[in-house]
């Protein structure tokens, strides 16, 4: 019995060093040397100020008409990358309908508009940090963004096309548009004269 306890203790200690210190340490070293950008959160710096303006892998909140909007986010406040969360609303939960209605209203869909709202634009993502929307959701907002920026709808649609990622290796996942990247591309194309953020939620 005494042997058993000593062996257990020693083995637990040795395996802790091996799998809790050496292993993560080695992976960190490789990752930091080989691809520090990816290993440190894929942060994006502002071209002029040099300050961090987010991560290319994480969504952030956009509420003004000049920008494309992302998925609904259930974190508090929305798109809080320090405390991720989904909505966890069941399919019959009235809040699900309420959130979708509020989003549709904010989108100001003109009555009689033929195209329906794409589902990913009126639902919350799993993480609350989804950086993407579907190409359909981006195109759905093209008209609003174009008129707010004084661009033609064609110009904005071209930009969406350039920023659409297809399926990875033509097989995996879904085609999608990174909202932050698309909005940064918009800003490079034409800087909004004045922006007055409006709440949309």
């Amino acid at each position: 019995m005494r042997d058993l306890v000593i062996q257990s203790l020693l083995l637990y200690f040795v395996l802790t060093i091996l799998t809790g210190v050496i292993y993560p340490g080695a992976v960190t070293m490789v990752a930091q040397l080989a691809w520090p950008q990816a290993a440190n959160g894929s942060l994006i710096k502002d071209e002029t100020t040099g300050g961090t303006i987010g991560s290319s892998l994480l969504g952030q909140e956009f509420t003004s008409d000049e920008y494309f909007w992302g998925r609904l986010s259930a974190t508090t406040p929305p798109y809080n990358a320090a405390a991720s969360s989904g909505s966890n609303l069941g399919p019959l939960n009235p809040s699900l309908l309420k959130n979708a209605r509020a989003r549709i209203e904010a989108l100001k869909v003109p009555a009689g508009k033929s195209s329906k709202v794409p589902v990913d634009l009126v639902t919350s993502s799993a993480s609350g940090l989804d950086p993407h929307i579907s190409p359909a959701s981006a195109l759905f907002q093209a008209e609003r963004v174009a008129s707010a920026r004084g661009l033609t709808q064609h110009e904005v649609e071209e930009l969406i096309k350039q920023n659409t990622e297809g399926k990875q290796f033509a097989v995996f996942g879904e085609s999608r548009v990174n909202v932050l990247q698309l909005n940064l591309a918009l800003d490079r194309l034409n800087r909004p004269a004045s922006s007055t953020p409006k709440p949309n939620r």
């Binding site: 639902t123 919350s124 799993a126 993407h132 879904e174």
Partner: peptide, 10 residues
Amino acid sequence: NMEGKETRFG
């Protein structure tokens, strides 16, 4: 049903 799902996974 995209509630609680990520766009890239569908």
